Amino acid sequence: MDDRPFLVADVGGTNTRVGLARGRDVDPRSVRRYANREFANLGPVLRRYRDETGGPSPKGACIAMAGPVADGVAHLTNLDWSIDITALIEATDAGSGAILNDLQAQGHALGHLASGSVRTVCDGPRREAAPRLVIGVGTGFNAVSVYDAPSGRIVPASEAGHANLPIRTEAELRLCTHLSTAHGFAAVEDVLSGRGLERVYHWLALEAGASDERRAADIMADLDTDPRARAALRLFVSMLGRVAGNLALIHLPFGGIVLVGGVARAVSGHLREMGFIDSFRDKGRFAGFMTNFAIDVVEDDFAALTGCAAHLTDIAAQTDGSE
């Protein structure tokens, strides 16, 4: 029996975390964080980790990349990085390799996270074996469906953050025009991300004849003292509810909706007071239907790593016919 660990990595727009896992269990002591700006590409990050930690070659390696993945090639959206299976195996000396979009990894993690790391935002029915929906809000935005089929878990890739921003009010139309002027296209991610919250704050300042700009962390820290910060978060939360509601109608996740990502965790305590549930259910004659969806938030920062480990474990089980 091959008892070597898996190597797993979560590649974000700013940092990359790399660790080791035994089966679906990630060893938190093995996890190291690397600043992407210090490396030319992902390969050198993975080689640095192997050089620093030593040990036997991993029996498998899986990365979760914050960007599109197609035909075994991943491209990081917010940095000029790319990697394919061959390069992944060469960098890690692993016996096999797999590449996932970061939200796909979060989908593979469902059911394998500690119960205390999942908190309910909006209760509702949860149908066993029904599709689920994972919505990620962090450096960027994305959403994926999760299906548990007889042949195994299926998590199709998606790039939902680059869809058009849904507009309902005159003020939102002005925001959309502002974003289109600055970026050429007003996408969901332009508002529903850490940088998006900063853009909303700056736009509100411009609307008031000022030009203030603030970091997302500072906006969140000053909600009690800065009325503009509260207004920015309220618009952000309202838009998040509307987009999540649209995605729920598209995918019908009767197994539940799960919010993940650093920004989702940061705003989760303000969702109810800022009108998230009202916006989520604001679908006219379908408002009652929207009560069919429970919504949770994942507070485990290593969830994508767990998802990578679970994916490799499932592949190994399918290969050797055992769990």
Rank of each mutant, 00 (worst) to 15 (best):
D301A: 15
R168Y: 13
D224A: 14
G288V: 14
R234E: 05
M220Q: 04
Q106D: 05
S238W: 13
S82R: 15
A114F: 12
C176H: 14
L173D: 07
V118D: 00
D10E: 09
V267D: 00
R234G: 03
I167R: 01
R48G: 01
G67W: 04
L46R: 04
M239T: 15
G97R: 07
L305R: 02
M274R: 08
T177C: 02
G184I: 14
P58W: 01
G184C: 11
I295F: 00
D226P: 12
G284A: 11
M239R: 11
Q318S: 13
F289T: 08
P150L: 04
E299T: 15
E159N: 07
G184F: 12
D296K: 13
A264H: 04
T86V: 10
R214I: 06
L7F: 12
H162P: 09
I167G: 01
P150K: 04
V188D: 00
D51G: 09
R29D: 11
T225F: 03
G136F: 07
V260C: 02
A129C: 11
T92V: 15
D226K: 14
G124N: 06
A109N: 05
R48H: 05
L252E: 02
F286V: 10
V118H: 01
L113Y: 11
P28N: 03
A217S: 13
F236I: 08
S279E: 05
R234L: 09
Y201F: 09
L240G: 03
A244V: 14
D93T: 15
S30D: 02
S145H: 04
R230K: 05
F141R: 01
D314L: 15
S151V: 13
A157M: 05
G124S: 06
A98G: 04
S117D: 02
F302T: 10
E299S: 08
D25S: 08
N164V: 13
R24M: 06
D190M: 10
A91R: 07
